[in-house]
Amino acid sequence: MRDIQPWLALLALALVSAVLTWLARRYALRRQLLDHPGERRSHHVATPRGGGIAIVVTALVGLAAGALLYPAAAAHLAMFAAGLVLVAGIGWWDDHRPLPAVRRLLVHMLASALLAGLVWQATGNALQAVLLFLVATALVNLWNFMDGINGIAGGYALVGALSLAAVMPMPFALLAVVVAAGCLGFLPFNFPRARIFMGDVGSGALGYLMAALAGLASVVTSIHWLALLIPLSAFIVDAGFTLSSRMLSGQRWMEPHTQHVYQRAVKAGWSHTQVTGVYILLGLVGAAVLALSVRLAPLQQAGLALAWGALLACLWAVMRVRLRNY
């Protein structure tokens, strides 16, 4: 039972996710949970939301299976699952009845603290735990900000999860496979044509899951934590620099907007498929850079990660100038 083939688990859980996404779409249509077109949105047709619950439930099924197969890890998996339920739960609530941003942020911070506690317990390194707390809180919100066009949040998370799975030993890599499976089952309903959106329940949960995988990899491998963020850097750079520019200009940065580079590209005439494809390509290149960094010393890995981030920042700045009129 423990000799699980990762690709078999991936396909089985992807099927579960696909069925759950179909059910979520029926539920959203029945409850009229729709995202309508508007000035601050990148779609033109009213579309059901909340399909990301399928990714969450698939992840929870995977975690439950892991607890049964590896009883010694059950308590840690339960704490991990509790954080996921917190983030997904507040997102599900917000999808049904919008909540104040501060209330959502407090829940995100609580879930991130659970992750940080797991890392602290495993390593005894308080600095590593604090860093994960900050990264997790950021990624939960950044993934939500980047979930604005068809396939981008799920597709980028799929690449990120598989890239982290590739550098982790078994059975830890199976957790990343579970996340990838959830995304794989959801994507046919969201890309290239969106029949349902992920919603806050899914985008926030994916940010939490990606942070958790990076945190796990930092514990079970000797890879520098900065290098583990390489496959996630395109989202971090676009969301981080865009939000920073909004703060510096005195704008209300928590409000919905269309100023991210990916949103401006769509407004400039690029299709959702083209823009999502570019980000997935950046994720694949980042995965290759991470794989190459494994052979380097930790400080060299950190330097490579910073160089990759600087390259993406330059690309962001160039695209920001080219798309400044959109």
Score class of each variant (00 low, 15 high):
H96P: 00
H108D: 07
L142F: 15
L174N: 00
M198N: 11
N150A: 03
M198E: 09
N125V: 12
R97T: 08
V135Y: 06
L139I: 06
A138V: 14
M109Y: 06
R104L: 11
G117Y: 11
Y156V: 15
P192E: 14
M109H: 02
V107D: 01
A176F: 13
A101W: 14
Y156C: 09
V201A: 13
V119T: 15
L209Q: 15
L106W: 15
L139C: 08
L134N: 10
L131D: 00
L110I: 10
G182A: 08
L118H: 13
W93H: 10
V177F: 02
L105Q: 12
L174M: 10
A161Q: 12
Y208Q: 05
S218H: 03
V135K: 04
N144L: 11
L115S: 04
M198D: 02
G182R: 05
V220A: 00
I196W: 09
V102W: 14
L114E: 06
A101F: 11
L134E: 03
A180R: 00
L132M: 06
P192S: 06
F133R: 01
D200T: 05
S218I: 10
L175N: 00
N190Y: 05
V177H: 03
G182Y: 02
V177W: 11
L99K: 14
I149R: 11
G89A: 02
L142S: 07
L158Y: 08
P98C: 01
A214L: 13
A194C: 15
L127S: 05
M168T: 05
G185K: 04
L216E: 08
